[in-house]
Structure formats: structure tokens, C-alpha cells
Design a protein around this nucleic acid. Structure first.
Lengths: 403, 403
DNA sequence: ACCGTCCCTGAATCATTGG
DNA sequence: TCCAATGATTCAGGGACGG
């Protein structure tokens, strides 16, 4: 059989043409049993891709999955494994099948792909994850240990210090004769956990090709990295728009894609030529880079019932409840700002918008604003409780001194 | 049946004594199916023998779960729901049972409790989550929507603008005839998602009591908050060390715990008793009940640079920096308290201690204190920024009306 | 009870502007 | 020309509504 190609056909029939023990990884991303038709138009609006995820019954769906998994099991090498991607709808039934086909003891992990996404008005909790089941064919499966950064709260410096036991059995940090701490051997980081926070493919991302249920390349790369080496063979029996194939090509793994839809295959082939991958700014810079407020500012905002605003200079928050049917923007005076500066910045940020009330939270005990006199401004000043406290203490101090 | 009590016995037998449609929430945290560990412990030693007596087979384990779920279903009100906490070993089988007993359509969410954990040297991915299945008895289940912060990458100032559809179906921001953007209605925040990152143990509280599978109180509180109201009845048929009972008590829900082990029950009662002892101690000082600080109070305290103090009726926090070489106690006026009440409580709590400054944070716009006149009290009143805001808005409203 | 259609959301990218 | 700030845009997937 030829690798690095996408085959058209029913996945079981195509799989049957492959030999035993020849594949390193099966990435299995079947329809999720949503009983819905999924359709999406591509970016130019020229083509509409859709696939039917409607089934006669749960049993007929599960039968297909089972047969396909049996074939997958057969073609896998002894060091191989399967990653089965599904969502809450049928995950439990599918895992029962996986137990049956691969064996309970070859269950390795339930990977949770978690993401933030635009919300909706559902009663209940917002859906924000999908499940990936990781089963190996045997105990001697291939696994590349992968280390992530330490949690931000971890004191890395401390971890790097060497430790010793004192005579009374306590563990303390070792110090040399000059009293300096001894740095220990290199630590690799924390082993990758089974909860993966990877951004959902945003509607605006160029990586999107218009195929429904498209997965981010990043997710597939992570799977391929931990379960295969360069040159290994990856099979995706429901390849759809071919994300797994793209990831395999990037990481120099061989791949075989299978899909029943000719349209999907053309699309996947197109992607393999273009290799259009956008790297997520969010992931590159980190979610923290968007946060520009200090803890104190956040507490102050929340204590007055405001939602923090991170992406607008001049506005630090918006009150949850409107005033006169309009939102109320809030600006916190910074240490280096005069009250007038703060007011001006807020005014500027509100240009072109009809607010009925704007708030500046005064945090510094400087003189009263000059700007407000004689001006018909709807900016109002409110002193922070902390400022009131500081002013009170100053007053009391003065009294104590004068005694 | 008596509430706020822990019963000893087989969960099914105890459940059978309860009436139909009488319970608001069942928190179901069964023992893990330890069939696999059974053989492991045989090799390693006799330490874990306590677990291996339970189950002959997976089927007998699942039978127990099923019977117990059937009883749980019976006792639940139509607005009630069940939260079933389980471990990956048998979670899929248990969910099949849940589908059977509660109905596929009453599946609401698979909650992922994810946590950071110390790494081990296991081959494969680090286990860092557990699953909680949320099923309701009927469609009209009780659910308290709970809103969280927007993602830092969201431009909230922008999404407050109203939108409209153009003739060609695109969504654009609405503008009035003067070219100004039109501001839309109030936003509450983002609905809580089904992935909950909660630390294994609350780092601040000395929560651990030594029971093997103890769950953090925070996790249980979150469940109770979204699925019950004050005064509702919560049942935990496998209550173990009684975390759910503790959470229920904190949040003023009624609870019934059931466990077969007398040891577990003593432990759970001990935990509840500890809370009671604190209560009675507080009663002597004049407190009414165990009060938990709300998030608002915590933000208020932190915004003025105070450290929250738990479980002291007269003092809610202490300032980080001393005044005149003495600590400064802070009390927040509660909604139902008059300013004088608050002052009196603070004074009483401070009796016998030489503070140079005591602060009451006024949160309600009631009349000025009478008590302070003519009294040489060192209690000082500071208005919360939120109160200042509310007063300002009232003033402005009055002006608008009088025009 | 069951379609199809429309409306509403907000995360995060892309596009444009401004310095 | 480059960078940061911010305005514009997309679309899954709920609910509501109408037939």
C-alpha cells in the first residue's frame, strides 16, 4: 500500500486491504452520534461541505465503530496505539467497545481536550471539552515522555536547589561553605497531563477551511509527538478535512487517510499542498499577556460590581448593572496619574459612545480636579475605600503628633 | 426522617426508608471499583486489604450501583438531580446505568474536575482529572446559572455594542443617525463551563482529615451552589468523610449522609462537630451562626489591603499594615445589620485588646451612627466604594426625575 | 412532537489605523 | 516600515418561534 495518500472508500473496506501489524498509530475521529447534519461553507463561500451524522439507532452506529476498531486493532503493530476522539454523546458506549477490542488492561488515558469558546444560552453548564481515549495494543506500547513547564505557582528556583537531610531527619536546602545555595541537576519539567488546554479553532482563524468539526493541527501534533517517532505510520480512518495528515506531514510521519466523501478528500489534498497553519497568538503569548491589571485593581473593580476590561486603554471595567439603560465605564486612577489625567483618558476612550455615567475611581490623595469645574462632564469621581482608609490614618497620625 | 444527620447502614436499605420525591440533590460518590488493585495489593503487601473485600466481579459492583441509583431516582423531586462522582476505572459502565435509570435525555453534563498534581514516574500521561456525571430527574430541573469572568482576550467594551444583520446576512455593529455606536443591554458574564479547575486540597484550610478519597469542599460547594438553593435537601449515600455534609452545612442546605463504615461516620461527625464547636464558641461571643464570607466581601477586604479572617463574627479581616504599632481589625457591615450593630459587634470582639484603630466598612446607606456621638470610641467608619457608587446613582436618578 | 429558521453570544483572529 | 492598539468579523449551538 502506498503511504502519504488519502484513500476514498468505506473505512472498513480500505482497512481490510492493509496487512497485520503494520501501523504505528490509529487516530480515530468518527462522527460523534449527534444525530444532526453538519454543514459549513468555506471561506470564499464557494463550496458547502456537509456530512450526515444521523443514524438509524445507537446500535447501528456502535456496530460500525466496533468493526472498524477491530480492523484497526489488527493492522496495529504491537507497539502501536489508538487515539479515539469523541464527545460526551457516545463516549461511554465507545469506551465499552474499546475495552472489548483492546482489552481493559490496555486502557492508558482518557485525554480531556479542554478549550474556551463563545457561549450560548443553554440551561446548564457550558460545554467546553471533548474526550480522547488512548488505548495501546499491548503493554509495550511506544510512548515519548513529554514535559511541560512548571505551574506558574511553582517556585522553580526552589526545585532546582539541592536538598539534604539534617541529622534529625528534616529535609532542608543544601548550602555550600559560603552559605550559598547549591543548585541541583537539571529538572525536565512536569510530565504532560491528561488534560490538554488547546485553543478551539476560532471562527476567524485562517486555518479553518470550512469543513465542519475541523480539529486544530496543534492537537494532532501533540498526539503524534507522544505516540510516534519520525517515519512512523499513522492511519486516520475518518480523516475528514485531513488535519491529522497535515500534522503528520509537519512532523515527518507517514500517513494514510481514509474518508468516504470525495469532497473531503479533495479538500484534504488541497490542505496538504497549501499547508496553511496559523499559530495561535493566544497560545504563543499566553493568556496572561492579555491581563494587564494588578490583583489590587481587579479586587477593587469586583468590589464595586464591575467586569474587568482588559483590551481598552482608558477603561478598566464596566459595571454589571447599567445606569439609565446604558453601560457605565470605570477607570481606576493609577499611581502616576493625576485625577485630571485619568478623567481625560476616560473621556477620550468614551468618544463616540453615549454613556449616561462614567466613573473614575480615585486612588491617590492629590488635589481636587480642576477640569471638572465649569465643565459639563458626566464623569463622576468616587474614592476607593483604600484611599479613604489612608486619608483617615493620616488624619489620626497628625492628631497623635499634635498631642 | 431526620435531616442534618449521618446514618449508618447499607445505602439502599437506608434510602428505602425515605419517601418519594423528597430530595433535591443526590451527590453520589461510590467506592471505586478496585478489582484491579486487588491483585496488585496481593503482591505488594497487606496494606490495602481493606479495599479488596468488596466486589466479586464488575457485574456485582455495577448491580449495587444500579440498585442504589434506582432508589436515588425514586427519592428525588422532579426538579432534582444527581451528581455522580467516579473514577476512570468504571466511569463508562456507570454512565450506561445512569442512561438507563435517569434516561439519555436527562443527561446534562460531564463535569471534568481537573487539578494539578505531583508527578509520578508512570509511563504515559499524568492523571489529572476526575469525571462527575450530572443527570436530572426531569427536564424542569433546578439550575442556578453561575457566571464567570470573560476571557482576557475578549474586548468587552466592544461586545456591549448592539449589532444588526445587513441585507447580505453579515453581522455588523449598529450605529445611530449621528454615526454613534448603539449600546446594548446588560451582560452578566460567561456561564460556568463543564471543566472545573479546583486544587486537590484547599491550600489555605487544613482540610485533610486523613480519609483516602476525600474531595475538596470547594468542589462540593460548587455543585451545591448550581443545583440547590438554601434549605434544600442533599443526600450523599456514600458520604465517607462527609465533605458533602460539611459543604451543605456551610451553604445552609439540609443534608443526610449515609455510610456503612462506623469509622467514616465518626470521622464525618467529628468534622461537623468541629464546625459546631466553633459555632457555640461564637455563640458565647454573640454570633448567630457559622457565616461564610461572600466573594464580594473578600474582594472588598482585599481591595483595602486586609487579610480576611474566617469564622469570627465581629472581625472580618485585619489590615496588612499596622497602625501605631498595633493591628487594625476590620468589620464589614452586613446587609441586615445597622451601622450601630456593626460597631457594637466589632467593639465586643475587640474587648480586652488594645487596638489603636478599628474599622467598620459601611456597605448600607442607612443613617449615621448614634452611638459614636459623645463616645470616645476608636471605631472609625469608612464607606465602601460600592456604597459611594450606589449613593451617587441615587442622587443622579433623583435629578433626572425632577427634571 | 417535529421540523426549519432566526436570533443571540463571545473567543480570538484578522484588518486597519495611528504614531 | 514596524509595532501596538483597537475595530471588524466569524460561526457553533443553544433557545425561541412559527408552521
Amino acid at each position: 500500500m502506498e503511504v502519504n495518500k488519502i484513500y476514498q472508500g468505506h473505512c472498513i473496506e480500505v482497512l481490510q486491504t492493509f496487512g497485520d501489524n503494520s501501523v504505528d498509530l490509529v487516530y480515530f475521529d468518527p462522527p460523534f452520534f449527534t444525530q444532526k447534519k453538519h454543514s459549513l461553507t468555506n471561506r470564499e463561500g464557494s463550496k458547502k461541505y456537509q456530512f450526515d451524522d444521523c443514524w438509524d439507532s445507537l446500535d447501528s452506529y456502535l456496530n460500525l465503530i466496533e468493526e472498524c476498531l477491530i480492523e484497526s486493532y489488527r493492522v496495529l503493530k504491537n507497539t502501536g496505539s489508538v487515539f479515539l476522539h469523541c464527545d460526551k454523546t457516545a463516549s461511554h458506549h465507545i469506551r465499552v467497545i474499546l475495552d472489548k477490542v483492546f482489552g481493559v488492561n490496555n486502557f492508558q488515558s482518557e485525554i480531556i481536550w479542554s478549550y474556551k469558546r463563545w457561549s450560548n444560552s443553554k440551561k446548564g453548564l457550558l460545554n467546553a471539552h471533548q474526550n480522547i481515549y488512548f488505548y495501546s495494543k499491548t503493554k509495550s506500547f511506544k510512548f515519548n515522555q513529554y514535559y511541560t513547564d512548571y505551574a506558574p505557582s511553582t517556585n522553580i528556583d526552589q526545585i532546582l536547589q539541592e536538598r539534604k537531610k539534617t541529622t534529625d531527619g528534616k529535609s532542608v536546602y543544601k548550602k555550600d561553605k559560603n552559605g550559598k545555595v547549591v543548585l541541583g541537576k537539571e529538572k525536565k519539567g512536569v510530565p504532560l497531563s491528561d488534560v490538554w488546554e488547546i485553543p478551539f479553532l476560532n471562527p476567524k482563524a485562517k486555518e479553518r477551511v470550512g469543513y465542519p468539526t475541523q480539529k486544530p493541527v496543534l492537537l494532532l501534533k501533540q498526539i503524534l509527538k507522544i505516540a510516534t517517532d519520525k517515519g512512523d505510520l499513522v492511519i486516520d480512518p475518518f480523516c475528514g478535512s485531513g488535519t491529522s495528515c497535515v500534522a503528520a506531514k509537519i512532523l515527518e510521519r507517514d500517513f494514510i487517510g481514509i474518508d468516504s466523501s470525495q469532497e473531503a478528500i479533495s479538500l484534504a489534498n488541497q490542505r496538504l499542498q497549501d499547508m496553511l497553519i496559523t499559530d495561535s497568538a493566544l497560545l504563543k503569548k499566553g493568556a496572561k499577556s492579555y491581563i494587564e491589571k494588578t490583583e489590587e485593581e481587579l479586587h477593587l473593580l469586583k468590589s464595586i460590581g464591575a467586569i474587568p476590561v482588559q483590551r481598552n486603554a482608558g477603561i478598566d471595567g464596566v459595571l454589571k448593572s447599567h445606569f439609565a439603560n446604558k453601560p457605565v465605564p470605570v477607570k481606576i486612577q493609577t499611581k502616576s496619574e493625576s485625577l485630571d489625567d485619568a478623567i481625560e483618558k476616560l473621556e477620550r476612550a468614551c468618544k463616540g459612545k453615549e454613556y449616561k455615567l462614567k466613573i473614575v475611581l480615585q486612588t491617590q490623595s492629590n488635589t481636587v480636579s480642576n477640569r471638572l469645574f465649569g465643565l459639563a462632564s458626566d464623569v463622576k469621581i468616587i474614592k476607593s475605600s483604600h484611599l479613604l482608609l489612608v486619608e483617615l490614618q493620616e488624619q489620626m497620625m497628625n492628631k497623635l503628633i499634635h498631642k
